[in-house]
Simulated assay, not measured.
Amino acid sequence: MSPFAYLAHTQLPALADRYDFKINYHAIDLPAAKLAVGNTAPPNVSMPVKLRYLMTDLQRWARRYDVPLVFPKTLKSERLNLGLYFAINRGRAEDYLRTAWLPTWGQGGDMGNEELIADVAHSMNWDVSEFLRFLDSPEAHDRYATDNQEAHRRGVFGAPTMMLGEEMWWGNDRLVFLEERLAAIKNDGGRQ
């Protein structure tokens, strides 16, 4: 549900490739992660002044990355989050995220809409009914719960969060610091 996770992901795979790192993807319930660390502030959409700034800032980042960004009709992301595990099972997490984010943050679609979710599966050349069944499966829900528990344990409070060991970088604007760390590791021959 995070626009900044969408924006970061337009850059992160290339960054990982440049430094020979592999991304291990995890889905989280963002409102639950915020609450787990005590963030009880109202959502951005209920603060018009902050939302106006946020929308301007998002467009600045979209222009910088030369990607489309349209606020989706809803932020009901749980079913698309659950789909990540179907993609991971098939070794296609990166493709799935790119495919799921295009009609949502890229084009403003309703991320909770079952037709949009089915279209994402179809675009991935997956059996749509198998994908939709997986979203309702105990496996999907158990893995989502496990990822959320682990995120809470590690102190994840927002998205995107990138972890390298126990080091954390939060936010699209922190990719530059992550890259500095990856470069230092590469320059040190991977010994850090």
Rank of each mutant, 00 (worst) to 15 (best):
Y144R: 04
A36V: 00
D127C: 01
S137F: 09
R153M: 07
W61V: 01
P138V: 01
L58I: 01
G106W: 03
Y144P: 06
D136P: 14
T40V: 01
W126Q: 01
R90N: 14
H141G: 12
A87V: 03
P48Y: 07
D20P: 09
K76C: 12
P68V: 03
D95I: 00
K34M: 10
I88W: 10
T161I: 00
Q149N: 11
T104G: 05
F86Q: 04
D136R: 02
L97P: 14
V70C: 12
G109N: 02
D66K: 08
D20M: 04
L75I: 00
Q59R: 05
D95Q: 11
T161H: 11
V49S: 13
Y53W: 08
K34I: 01
V156F: 11
M47C: 11
A87W: 03
Y25L: 05
P138L: 06
D20H: 14
L58Y: 14
V67K: 07
M111N: 05
R18E: 12
P72Y: 09
L35E: 08
R64W: 09
E78S: 08
L82R: 06
R63D: 13
W101C: 10
W101M: 09
L54H: 09
D110P: 15
R143L: 12
R52L: 07
S137A: 10
N44H: 06
R92E: 15
M47R: 08
R60I: 00
R133C: 12
A33V: 00
D127T: 01
S123L: 04
F71D: 09
G38S: 09
L51R: 06
K22A: 15
P103V: 02
V37L: 09
P68W: 03
F157K: 03
S77Y: 14
E115P: 15
L80F: 11
N113H: 13
R98Y: 08
Y19R: 05
K34R: 09
Q107G: 05
V37I: 07
L84K: 06
L80E: 08
A140P: 15
W126N: 01
G109Y: 03
G112P: 11
G108W: 05
R60G: 15
T56N: 14
G106M: 05
T99W: 13
I23Y: 10
Y53G: 13
Q107N: 08
F157H: 11
L51Q: 07
A145E: 10
A41C: 06
E115R: 10
L69K: 00
L75G: 11
A145V: 00
R98A: 13
D95G: 13
L58C: 10
G112K: 04
M55Q: 09
A140I: 00
D95S: 15
L135V: 02
A32H: 08
G112I: 00
Y96G: 11
L58D: 09
D142S: 13
K73P: 12
E115K: 11
Y96K: 02
A118N: 04
W101D: 10
I117G: 15
N24D: 12
W61F: 15
A151K: 03
N113G: 14
I117Y: 14
F86C: 04
V70A: 14
P48T: 00
R60S: 13
G91E: 06
R153H: 13
F131M: 01
G83I: 00
D20K: 07
R64L: 11
L54T: 04
S129K: 03
A121I: 02
D20E: 09
R98W: 06
L80N: 07
A41T: 00
Y53L: 05
